[in-house]
Design a protein around this nucleic acid. Structure first.
Lengths: 218, 218
DNA sequence: GGAAAAATTTAGCCAAAACTAAAAAATAAT
DNA sequence: ATTATTTTTTAGTTTTGGCTAAATTTTTCC
């Protein structure tokens, strides 16, 4: 299969490709914290393996095979993040670093069984969509409530966890899927939120909770 | 911290040390499937890191620090094996290879939280004891029931899991800790077992169940 | 359009962890 | 107690994935 270094390159290229259509050597160098010269070397290797096309001085793009691999790595990463946060009780700031290691464990069976064990979650604790086994993922643009802009109405589209304590809290605050909400203000002290529901009710939401409620455009 | 290669050496030396008191270059070479010359190189490196003492031509022994590291790696390995088998539903033959990768994920917090999530299990699916955070582990020689010799009386000494469905089944079959059992026969077809209890009752045990009941000598 | 700046590549080097072939030490056998 | 055999080490290479310094190409700016 592929080495950890190769997988990290592919993953980074995938993410950068969403902003620039051709990923430059320097952009990769900055993201991976390696020198441009090393990036050039690796791009040649990855081109030889047909994971990307590379044109001297003009950067690279993933091939279909490269994108497939990238989505698979992202799938592993986000499933582990979900596991760490949901099952082991890690805070969402802590999960990324550990998932960076776990994502490189090679075993298709492991990924599939983990997915099933977690109940086929569609979003990780940061609100990013988790690709399915074929690489498809929910494309809807959405953000956790705590990052949603003030005064812009939005729709509750998903929750990041099925924890019953979370679900209980949501139902008590009348925050069901499909509810329309407006963030009235964010308090600087603890980054908690005041939001207004359709019926005009004002509800106070901790930052912690706001991370698990996902909002999309109406 | 330590590299994957270093961790694998330390783990192998720990296991070999239980048979020979000084671990020879050749023994390590055979176990790790690397050439003796490579082993010599690595032993020098590990000695420099004070994980073992090494005397030219006479093999090596782990230092206290080396043993501590070895037990920590074994702890990680067996906790993951338990997770894979108990939570993800892998068969016990499949878990070893995947755990070989997972054991090298570096994060003390991960190990501790995983341990807690699993309910602090004391034995892995193969019946091997899982060291605790300080390196202590149950030293009793014991085997899963499904590997216990026929006609040899044994004592139920531990169960490999606290799963309540398992515990329910055990109490129904009157297989409490301390019970004396004799394996009457093992059926070749599904490797299930017929065992006799103290009161003469015959009980039928699936292989699946037999893996989670540990037996030691009377 | 040509000079300066920025980006990228080439060339040569390093460390980790493996390898082979040959030398040296330890062990076994006559 | 020598010799033969086995084990281990030394010396020199390879591959992977980094690095620096210098050269080259592209881009930008007057």
């Amino acid at each position: 299969m592929y080495t950890v270094a190769e997988e990290n390159y592919i993953k980074s290229i995938y993410h950068l490709q969403r902003q620039q259509q051709n990923v430059s050597t320097n952009a990769l160098s900055a993201r991976l914290q390696t020198r441009p010269a090393s990036v050039t070397d690796m791009l040649k290797k990855l081109e030889a393996k047909k994971l990307l096309t590379y044109e001297k001085y003009y950067g690279c793009r993933l091939t279909a095979a490269g994108s497939r691999l990238a989505l698979n790595i992202i799938r592993r990463h986000r499933l582990w993040e979900y596991f760490l946060s949901e099952k082991l009780g890690f805070g969402w700031e802590e999960v990324h670093e550990i998932a960076e290691q776990l994502e490189h464990v090679q075993s298709t069976a492991l990924t599939e069984k983990l997915d099933a064990f977690l109940g086929f979650p569609r979003f990780d604790p940061h609100g990013d969509p988790i690709p399915d086994g074929t690489g498809k993922m929910s494309q809807q643009w959405q953000l956790p409530l705590c990052e949603w802009p003030v005064d812009k109405p939005g729709l509750v589209s998903a929750v990041g966890s099925q924890d019953e304590r979370l679900l209980e809290m949501l139902s008590q605050k009348k925050l069901h899927i499909g509810a329309v909400v407006v963030v009235v203000q964010q308090f600087a002290f603890d980054r908690s939120l005041e939001i207004r529901l359709e019926d005009g009710c004002l509800v106070h939401i901790s930052e912690q909770l706001g991370k698990f409620i996902f909002i999309k455009k109406q």
